[in-house]
Design a protein around this nucleic acid. Structure first.
Length: 723
DNA sequence: ATGGACAATGTTTTT
DNA sequence: CATTGTCCAT
């Protein structure tokens, strides 16, 4: 197969470029992923590089999965040994392998943002600092930023008293992490960068191995990531980065698009290749996008062009208020579908903040139309899910203080704050983690520490300790699913969570979803399961092949495309967000965010703003977004402003492309039917026996040839429909 | 120790 | 307004 076939000259140049540092500046829709995957295939298939000597990193698991599939598709199965994954997963792997050089051991657990904040709280309390004055969230953000810039507690710049406090909290926070044998998200990058920096032997081993290092979305890298990339490519200097500074929207997370400039400075022999042909959008949409982004300073102008034709004008709509805005969106979608111009799945509605999804959801619900919501309430962020995960983590690693804190009295078992505090104090005296002390109390029931406490407290503690010890005893012989079931049973979790209300039922259903997830790790065991849980993100669960409009934030929209895009809430204060007003860099990022949104659209674009907006309870007059001033009038079509009294929703049956679902939950299109043959990644072939919509998911009963009857959630099980 | 009622408080984006 | 924390009665 000719790997250059079907590529335009710029893409061919990028794919077949020689070795050495290479920077590909890829405009939106210019076939960036295509270039990257063809490049990998080219290295292996044409240049004869062994897959083992290639590293490719992405930001999301979804991107990694997609690339992997496409490379395999191009090469056949010829990719064994290729290291392809997210920054975080790749670093986690490397750190586990090299743990002997590091102050933690290879069974470390990974703390997410919630865990991080609770650990900051612990540190604040230990240092007798006021949580009101030093908000944990804020402190956490500062620590996180420092880590992203490779600043350790000792180097934390202190100019004010507050800085001094932060550096103290940071130091303690880091100690607590190590005591828990835990790393936070940022640590994965930080420790990897430090290890490569400070350990020449390790650095050289990896640098020699990776003859080629490829990076997706390079504009989103932070300093830690840039540093570790440089180290990994330090021997062969074949660093191939693809990105677009105009799509840099993660500055608040430490991403620094100036890494693109740094790259050109650090590698002054780098080849720079520009991809300007857009395969996604019609010209009118590209022109609007260009007009908006051109106002940003310090950028290399790109001339985006397309062969998809001029396209129709974009639509600008002024609604009376935000409720009307949502109604307009839903009505318009319904009308376009009713006219047969588009299918429901063609639409995306994008907004600046998650909170804005609510009015949209309500509008869809009022009109009995289904929709897909991306992100918002994170599955893994739900209390019951976190509880069960915390139990698993504690069994895996009893030193995990954050998890212990979470579950030691959940469900309530008579271990209150005071008892837990005593346990911690005693543990600290013995230089043990609380979990370790608990286990020790079980081994040696006569420990003096027990006597120091009240009888009731000691009883409750040892009962919990015994449970923990029992789970640990079986953890290596049982599958994650069996372990979960055992834990659920022994702590009587269902009785705690499922109180008979609808909410309780939902909660229990979430636990069931976690069980289903666990069942995919039957053979692999607890460690990979926990790692997977820690490193999946919302982005990874976005499915674009649904049959209903997608609601998502502008951030979540990056990397996706839709035939018709609505961007709502184009008001000053919302987009750009008020918090960015006083910072020119932040304002530039807001503008890029709008640019990303606009360039998601293939055929049609609707920009929507309103005169009034309810901030919280109150309705407030708001201004249209200042960014709208930069949209050339010639490209805009504004419908006559007749909506201060909204027309009645299109209620004809024609527009109800699906019957309303039960309850108030979002309705999901049924995609599976009895008799359908499907394939599951683990259980392989099976036949659908039954399908029902429940909550916002489709629940399937499937009979698998190999393992028999299973119940799965369509959104979670990666099913493939077979003909 | 527990659970409920009330108050305060704070609202961006998330690997 | 919706979540989170704090206080108070059991």
């Amino acid at each position: 197969m000719n790997l250059l076939e079907g590529l335009n000259p710029q893409q061919q140049q990028a794919v077949s470029a020689g070795t050495g540092p290479i920077l590909v500046l890829a405009g939106p829709g210019s076939g960036k992923t295509r270039v990257l995957t063809h490049r990998i295939a080219y290295l292996i298939g044409v240049l004869g590089v062994r897959p083992y000597n290639i590293l490719a990193v992405t930001f999301t698991n979804k991107a990694a999965r997609e690339m992997e599939q496409r490379v395999v598709h191009l090469l056949g199965e010829n990719t064994r040994g290729l290291m392809l994954g997210t920054f975080h997963a790749t670093c986690a792997r490397l750190l586990r392998r090299e743990a002997e050089h590091l102050p933690f051991d290879s069974s470390f657990v990974i703390y997410d943002a919630d865990d991080q904040v609770s650990l900051v709280k612990t540190a604040l309390r230990e240092l007798n600092l006021d949580e009101k004055q030093y908000r944990p969230q804020g402190i956490h953000a500062l620590i996180s930023n420092a880590k992203n810039e490779l600043i350790l507690p000792d180097d934390y710049p202190v100019q004010t008293y507050r800085d001094e406090v932060v550096s103290r909290v940071y130091r303690r926070y880091q100690e607590l992490l190590l005591a828990s044998n835990a790393l936070d998200f940022d640590d994965l990058l930080l420790w990897t960068a430090l290890l490569l920096e400070q350990n020449p032997a390790v650095r050289e081993r990896y640098a020699r191995r990776f003859e080629h290092v490829l990076v997706d979305e390079f504009q989103d890298t932070n300093q830690a990531q840039y540093s570790l990339l440089k180290h990994l490519a330090s021997f062969h200097r074949n660093l191939y980065v693809v990105g677009d500074t105009d799509q840099s929207i993660y500055g608040w997370r430490g991403a620094d698009y100036r890494n693109v400039l740094r790259f050109q400075k650090d590698f002054d022999d780098a080849q720079v290749i520009l991809l300007e042909q857009n395969y996604r959008s019609v010209q009118s949409i590209l022109d609007v996008a260009t007009a908006v982004i051109d106002r940003n300073p310090y950028r290399t102008p790109k001339r985006l062009f397309t062969e998809r034709g001029a396209g129709q004008k974009i639509t600008l709509y002024e609604a009376y208020d935000d409720r009307n805005e949502a109604e307009y969106v839903v009505e318009t979608i319904a009308a376009l579908v009713a006219r047969g111009q588009s299918r429901p799945g063609d639409f995306a509605v994008m907004y600046r903040t998650n909170a804005q999804s609510r009015l949209l959801e309500e509008a869809f619900l009022r009109n009995n139309l289904p929709y897909r919501l991306v992100g918002a309430q994170r599955f893994y962020g739900r209390r019951e899910v976190k509880d069960v995960i915390a139990y698993l983590r504690l069994v895996h690693n009893p030193s995990d203080e954050v998890s212990l804190t979470r579950v030691i009295n959940t469900p309530a078992r008579g271990i209150g704050n005071k008892t837990y505090l005593e346990l911690r104090t005693e543990a600290q005296k013995l230089r043990l983690s609380s979990g370790a002390l608990l286990l020790k109390m079980v081994e040696k029931p006569g420990l003096p520490q027990l006597k120091a406490m009240g009888r009731r407290a000691a009883d409750a503690l040892s009962k919990f300790g015994e449970m923990l010890a029992r789970w640990r005893a079986v953890k290596d012989e049982t599958s994650p699913l069996e372990l979960i079931d055992r834990i659920l049973l022994e702590v009587d979790y269902r009785a705690y969570i499922d109180d008979g209300t609808e909410e309780g039922r939902d909660r229990w259903e979430n636990v069931q979803e976690l069980r289903r997830l666990a069942s995919e790790y039957q053979e692999q065991g607890l460690t990979p399961f926990l790692e997977q849980l820690a490193l999946v993100s919302d982005q990874d669960t976005v499915e674009t092949n649904g049959n209903a409009p997608t609601l998502l934030t502008l951030h979540a929209a990056k990397g996706l495309e839709f035939p018709v895009v609505f961007i709502v809430g184009l008001n000053d204060g919302t987009l750009p967000h008020a918090r960015s007003f006083d910072d020119p860099d932040a304002m530039a990022e807001e503008r890029r965010l709008l640019y990303v949104g606009i360039t998601r659209a293939k055929d049609r674009l609707f920009l929507v703003y309103s005169q009034f907006r309810s901030q919280f309870g109150y309705q407030e007059a708001v201004e249209p977004s200042r960014f709208l001033e930069d949209v050339p009038e010639a490209l805009v079509d504004s419908p006559q402003l007749s909506r201060s009294r909204p027309t009645s929703p299109y209620a004809s049956d024609a527009v109800r492309w699906q019957a309303p679902g039960r309850g108030s939950a979002p309705v999901v299109q049924q995609r599976y039917h009895p008799g359908m043959h499907v394939r599951h990644p683990v259980w392989e072939d099976g036949m659908v026996l039954n399908s029902r919509i429940q909550d916002d998911d489709e629940i399937l009963d499937i009979f698998f040839e190999k393992v028999g009857l299973k119940r799965v959630a369509a959104s979670l099980a990666r099913l493939e429909i077979r003909q």
